[in-house]
């Protein structure tokens, strides 16, 4: 696959969707494009757009649920629903809700949107697979601001306690949240050291390098839950959005959309 071209196509879809609904979250959607591509195109097993509920499939939890346009664009690309549905994002009666809704959208495994909860739900999925002696894996993507929730650390502790070596969390480490940078709002400190201390196997990669993410996804668990710190840029791929916390949840005007869209060269 031409990763670069595909990433641009996904970003173009995200921008179209968010411009159409004049709401939603561009910054964090653009930062996790490569992370979700590595999962959906290269890593996760048992995915079948014709049978989205296949019980043997790997599970995915977008714990930073506000970034769902990225997930929707990829699911549409894989054929879970028609690409034309993307234009209905966030509209009344659309199956594409403002935050992931597994009862409405084919291919969405778990509802998220309230930060921290997806992390804990992923513990239950992985634990459930163990109890039922299943070999499918659980993956979750978390935000850095999200890691300020106490719930995330309760979950992290339980994952190590139950030796969930079938669970991988990926951190979208873009350093920004709503009110500013992590450092200004609530410093995360040395996040990798914290996960190591909590008993996780820790990897650290460039979150826009799909090959590097793939390698970390394939790397051994060594009997532990795996944490992949993915260094990313919020608003990645749109020059005027990159590293600007103001683009967390702001709508684009027509001029901004046209510029952003043109930059994807699709």
């Amino acid at each position: 696959m031409d990763y670069e071209k595909k990433a641009k196509e996904i970003r173009a879809e995200i921008l179209k969707m968010l411009f159409a609904c004049q709401s939603g979250h561009p910054g964090g959607s653009l930062s996790c494009v490569e992370m979700l591509m590595a999962l959906y195109y290269d890593t996760m097993k048992g995915l079948d757009p014709k049978d989205p509920k296949n019980p043997e499939r790997d599970r995915f939890v977008l714990s930073k649920g506000h970034s769902c346009p990225t997930l929707y664009a990829i699911l549409a690309d894989l054929g879970y629903f028609p690409k034309s549905d993307l234009a209905s994002l966030r509209q009344l009666h659309s199956h594409l809700q403002g935050h992931p809704d597994c009862k409405k959208t084919p291919g969405v495994d778990v509802n998220t949107g309230s930060l921290g909860q997806g992390a804990s739900v992923s513990i239950g999925l992985a634990l459930g697979a163990k109890v039922q002696k299943k070999t499918w894996k659980t993956y979750a993507v978390l935000g850095d601001g999200e890691c300020q929730e106490g719930l995330v650390w309760e979950a992290a502790m339980s994952a190590a306690h139950y030796k969930l070596d079938n669970l991988t969390w990926m951190l979208d480490y873009n350093h920004l949240q709503i009110d500013g940078s992590n450092e200004e709002v609530m410093d995360l400190g040395d996040i990798n050291a914290k996960f190591k201390a909590f008993g996780w196997e820790v990897y650290d990669v460039d979150g826009h390098d799909i090959k590097a993410i793939d390698e970390a996804l394939q790397a051994p668990h060594n009997g532990k839950p795996k944490f992949i710190c993915c260094h990313t840029v919020k608003g990645k791929g749109v020059s005027f959005m990159e590293n600007q916390f103001g683009w967390h949840g702001s709508p684009m005007n027509k001029e901004q959309f046209e510029k952003a869209f043109a930059e994807q060269e699709v």
């Binding site: 809700q97 403002g98 935050h99 809704d101 309230s114």
Partner: peptide
Amino acid sequence: VGEDGGSH
């Protein structure tokens, strides 16, 4: 709240 949906 509007477009953010039922979770919010």
